[in-house]
Design a protein around this nucleic acid. Structure first.
Lengths: 115, 115
DNA sequence: TGTCCATCCCTTGCGCTTCTAGGCATCTTC
DNA sequence: GAAGATGCCTAGAAGCGCAAGGGATGGACA
């Protein structure tokens, strides 16, 4: 059923996470909340997707993490973008742009089914 | 020049195939060529991705197929959109729109949206 | 005639990512 | 001290795209 739930296409999550972290160091739980909020609920990131993704990105050197206290007084792992990660963010953002342009061409070019 | 190789995110291929078939019945080989051509080489569909995808879509009742002769005189499997498939195309196209808008919000690509 | 290339179809197995479904620990509130 | 929110994590299953195989046909060309 077409709920607001939108399974993210493979690879997109990485891009979104990198972008979310680029602004300022954030911890995982807040990343999910921020993505959902900014996207107006369209993007929903279950924790089972989020944390593995964060670990992947950290393993590849795109993110680095430090434990700090949150506003609520709890210890949390704050991720920040490395230099390599910033470059990766640019690359993926460019790829994304190229992709949506290409898909746009395909979806829009043939006026055959234009409603 | 280096072709812009772009691994398609999971699920995107279905949408593109449905759209390609929507205009008129086409056979698999031509679908791949058309997608690559219309997208200006950005979208490339290897046969190992294409045919399984076609079979999936046929299995789910989104596509139907008939063997016909091509212009070049060879037998080929021409796929066409079923009623269910057309509905699916609309659904997926809408999902895609919603997604790129959401990602756009997060990336801040909208003019002045960044902050 | 025989060979090569382009066209056209297909399958298997791998790798990758996402999601479901759990568990664990801390802090606040009642 | 129980409950709920916060915050982190893992294991397993499922799905999809891709590389790398293979086969069959028709036309071009020597």
């Amino acid at each position: 059923m077409a709920a607001a739930k939108s399974d993210l296409p493979q690879g997109t999550l990485d891009l979104l996470i990198l972008k979310a972290v680029a602004v300022e160091p954030v911890h995982g739980y807040a990343i999910a909340q921020r993505l959902e909020q900014v996207s107006r609920g369209v993007v929903q990131v279950p924790e089972g997707s989020l944390y593995p993704a964060l670990h992947r990105l950290e393993n590849r050197g795109f993110l680095a993490a430090d434990w700090k206290k949150t506003e609520t007084g709890r210890e949390a792992k704050f991720y920040r973008l490395t230099r390599k990660g910033r470059k990766q963010l640019e690359t993926e953002a460019a790829s994304w742009q190229r992709l949506i342009e290409a898909v746009g061409l395909i979806l829009g070019v043939a006026d055959g089914g234009a409603q």
